[in-house]
Amino acid sequence: MRDACCVSSAAIRGDGSDPVTESYYERTGECSFKPTAYAGGAWSPDEQHFSPVAGLVVHAIDGHLAKRPGSGDLVLARISYDILGRIALDECEITVETVRPGRTIELLEATVSIGGRAVVRARAWLLASLDTSAVADSPHERLPAPEELSPWVMSEGWGGGYVSSIEVRRTPPVRRGRTSAWLSSSLDLVAGEPISALASYITLVDTANGIAVQQDPAVWMFPNVDLTIHLHRQPVGGWTGLDTTVTFGPSGQGLTSSVLHDVRGPVGHAEQILTVRPLAGG
Rank of each mutant, 00 (worst) to 15 (best):
H64R: 15
A42E: 10
H49K: 00
Y38D: 14
K67Q: 13
H49A: 12
G55P: 08
L56I: 11
V58A: 09
A10D: 14
K34M: 14
E47D: 13
F50T: 10
E47H: 14
H64K: 11
C31L: 05
P45S: 09
R68M: 11
D46F: 06
L56C: 10
W43A: 03
F33T: 04
K34I: 01
E30L: 09
G16P: 11
D18A: 15
Y25D: 07
H59F: 11
Y25P: 01
T36G: 10
S23C: 15
Q48V: 02
E30F: 01
I61V: 14
V58F: 04
H59S: 12
H59G: 02
E26W: 00
G14W: 03
S51D: 12
T36R: 04
H64N: 12
P52L: 00
A10T: 11
S17L: 13
Y38W: 14
A54Y: 01
H64G: 09
T21S: 15
K67G: 15
G41R: 02
D46S: 12
G41H: 08
S44C: 12
A54E: 07
A39L: 06
A60N: 05
H64D: 11
S32R: 13
P45F: 04
F50C: 06
R27E: 06
H64T: 02
R27S: 11
V57Q: 06
F50V: 10
P19F: 02
S17Y: 00
K34Y: 03
G29H: 03
P19Y: 03
W43R: 05
Y38G: 05
Q48L: 10
K67A: 15
T28P: 02
I12A: 15
P45E: 05
R13H: 11
R27D: 03
P35N: 07
D18F: 03
G55A: 06
A10H: 08
V58D: 07
P45L: 12
H49C: 06
F33P: 11
D62H: 08
A42S: 14
L65S: 13
A60G: 08
A42N: 12
L65N: 12
V57W: 03
F33N: 07
S51N: 10
V58C: 14
F33W: 09
R13E: 14
L65E: 10
I61M: 11
G55C: 07
I12C: 14
D15C: 02
P52F: 04
G29A: 13
W43I: 02
E30P: 15
Y24M: 08
W43P: 08
H64L: 10
A66Q: 10
T28I: 13
P52M: 01
D15T: 02
P45N: 05
G14N: 09
E47N: 13
T36N: 09
S44T: 03
P35I: 02
H59T: 11
E30D: 15
E22L: 10
S51Y: 04
G55M: 02
Q48N: 15
G16V: 05
A66M: 06
T28R: 13
G14F: 03
R68D: 07
T21F: 02
R68L: 14
I61L: 14
C31F: 00
G41T: 03
L65A: 13
S32W: 00
R27W: 01
S51G: 13
Y24N: 10
